Amino acid sequence: MDRFVVISGCSGGGKSTLLAELAPRGWTVVEEPGRRIVREEQAGEGAALPWIDAAAFARRAIAMALADREAAGRGEGWVLFDRGLVDAAAALEHATGEAALATLGRVHRYHRRVFLAPPWPEIFVNDPERPHGFEAARAEYERLVEAYAALDYAVTILPKVGVAARADFVLDALGPLPVER
């Protein structure tokens, strides 16, 4: 969908903070599937956590990203996704070697421009939903840069600036929603 925009990139790079800045400005945002899954798994006895069963986690993230896309399709205007299907497919490919990107990533497209938050050690912090270290986050970022480029997305790296300036950067880059014909 041409109105579905992905904010992806380095874990701990400020994606969720950026989307929290954009939501009160009137933008529809979709929370990262991974964080929702981790909370659900930690609330129960689940093992579909990236540090326990990366493949199960990625499969759940794929299902959730597909459901998010379907739900967002019923609305209007720009929709900003905190990660999405390409991220989940890349995680599954990394965990299992399955060719998930070639199938899912080409069929279920987002807006051609994708924004990637680069590794930014000055803001990276661990939390209960993100126990991995900065080097693991950097490696994930490199995989995502390659994945989005291989799927012919126009990758735009977010500047390392304050959250309000980052939000303005995204809004300026997107401009008004194109009129459907």
Rank of each mutant, 00 (worst) to 15 (best):
A67C: 07
T28I: 14
D168L: 14
V107S: 13
E40G: 02
V155M: 01
E140W: 12
K160W: 00
A88F: 11
H94C: 00
F134W: 07
A58D: 05
Q42N: 08
A154S: 09
S16K: 03
V114N: 05
A65V: 12
E140I: 04
S16C: 05
R36C: 01
R60Q: 15
R25M: 06
A136I: 09
E142N: 05
A117S: 14
F115G: 02
W120N: 04
L22Q: 07
L101M: 09
A63H: 10
W120Q: 08
A23W: 00
E135L: 07
V125S: 05
L80Q: 04
P118K: 13
I37R: 02
F169V: 04
W78D: 05
G77K: 13
L151C: 10
D172T: 13
I157G: 00
R112L: 03
L158C: 03
F81K: 08
A65R: 11
G44D: 06
F4K: 05
K15C: 04
F57C: 01
R138E: 11
G13H: 07
H108T: 09
F57Q: 04
E98Q: 15
Y110A: 12
Y153H: 15
A61G: 08
A56E: 07
D68L: 11
E129L: 05
L171T: 13
A47F: 02
L85S: 09
W27P: 00
I37C: 01
A43G: 14
T28V: 14
A23K: 14
A91V: 00
A23N: 02
T103Q: 12
G12I: 04
S8I: 02
V125I: 04
I7C: 08
P50G: 06
I52D: 01
E32M: 11
H111Y: 14
G97Q: 08
R35Y: 07
A72N: 06
K15H: 09
R109C: 11
T103I: 10
A67V: 07
V29D: 03
Y141H: 15
R113I: 07
E93C: 03
I52E: 04
E45L: 09
I157C: 01
A165F: 02
L18H: 12
R39W: 03
N126S: 12
R39F: 01
R59I: 01
G84R: 10
R143D: 12
R36G: 02
G133M: 01
P178F: 13
V179K: 15
D82I: 06
V170T: 03
A95Q: 06
G34C: 05
E142F: 07
G105D: 11
A43K: 08
A90F: 05
L144Y: 15
Q42V: 09
A95V: 08
E70Y: 00
P121E: 12
R59L: 07
E180S: 13
L49G: 03
E45N: 14
F81N: 09
V163P: 07
Y141D: 05
M1R: 13
V145K: 09
P24Y: 11
V6M: 12
E140G: 13
T96H: 05
I7W: 10
L19A: 04
D87R: 12
D127N: 06
F134K: 07
A43M: 06
V114P: 02
A164D: 08
H108R: 13
R74I: 06
R138D: 03
A72I: 08
L101S: 05
Y148A: 01
R60D: 08
E180G: 04
G77R: 14
A137D: 04
H111N: 15
A100V: 07
C10P: 10
P119F: 05
